[in-house]
Design a protein around this nucleic acid. Structure first.
Lengths: 136, 136
DNA sequence: GTAGCTGCAAACTCTTTGCAACTCT
DNA sequence: AGAGTTGCAAAGAGTTTGCAGCTAC
């Protein structure tokens, strides 16, 4: 049983065939798949899966904090399996998502919020750019 | 003629009654109104205005960089009349949007992108929090 | 057995758009 | 006059949901 499956079962979720497939897709994903992406990959393993189930499952996993939902400036959601805390740089030319971490930034965001009289609950930090040094 | 009106006319936009109303609403807004907000306020001055016109006008103004469109984690867009560069802290309890600036952050974001091999084109930095020191 | 899960299709929200009529310039 | 603009209603995209049947536990 995979780690994700175990954690779902522990949360009381029934391990249906569809869920196993979706969890497998997520476990194997090294990118930040959209709902459509997850759906397409899941269909390759079980063509009877419906996109409604994918939406519902991803929603549940997000609530359980097993995945994180992102809404970049694209008009739809992407998901990623939870790992260490990090931020994203989106390559505007390819759509590729690059992860990064930055301690200075972590400290700074908390300080900014506190200075404004707020306790930081959540945040969003995204960079959009294009690769340097490209020949035209 | 207001500053916004002048800049629109300069860009070749016809100054229709509806546009004047929408520009007036924007000129008077000290917050970050949603399309719905702008629509409601505009209707108070001219009840014949349609929301399609509001959408179209805000879209045009965004292209002209006279306003900026934000998509916070709310599922709809908010607009703000362009001013100095700044970021936003969204009060999760009231929906209030607080603006802030931070030079350190500005330098940091450029550095992070460059270190990853990217030229920074755009970015998003938003904080979500709740007011400190509130009595329960 | 039954609470929970699924597929399907319809519904929803926010936004965009085709069209015919209208209006600034 | 004529290009640009408008209101309306329909269409779009992404997402959610009601329902009847199915399934894991």
């Amino acid at each position: 049983m995979s780690d994700l499956e175990e954690r779902c079962a522990a949360a009381g979720l029934k391990m249906t065939g569809q869920r196993k497939v979706i969890l497998k897709v997520l476990g194997e994903a090294s990118d930040h798949p959209s709902v459509e992406d997850v759906y397409d990959r899941a269909k390759d393993m079980d063509s009877s899966i419906s996109i409604a189930t994918v939406y519902r499952t991803l929603g549940l996993l997000d609530e359980l904090d097993l995945v994180t939902r992102h809404e970049f400036q694209e008009g739809y959601s992407r998901y990623e399996v939870n790992a260490d805390h990090h931020h994203h740089l989106i390559d505007l030319e390819t759509g590729k998502v690059i992860e990064f971490q930055n301690d200075e930034l972590e400290k700074l965001k908390i300080k900014i919020a506190r200075d404004l009289g707020y306790e930081l609950v959540d945040h969003r930090f995204e960079l959009y750019g294009k690769k340097l040094g490209k020949k035209k």
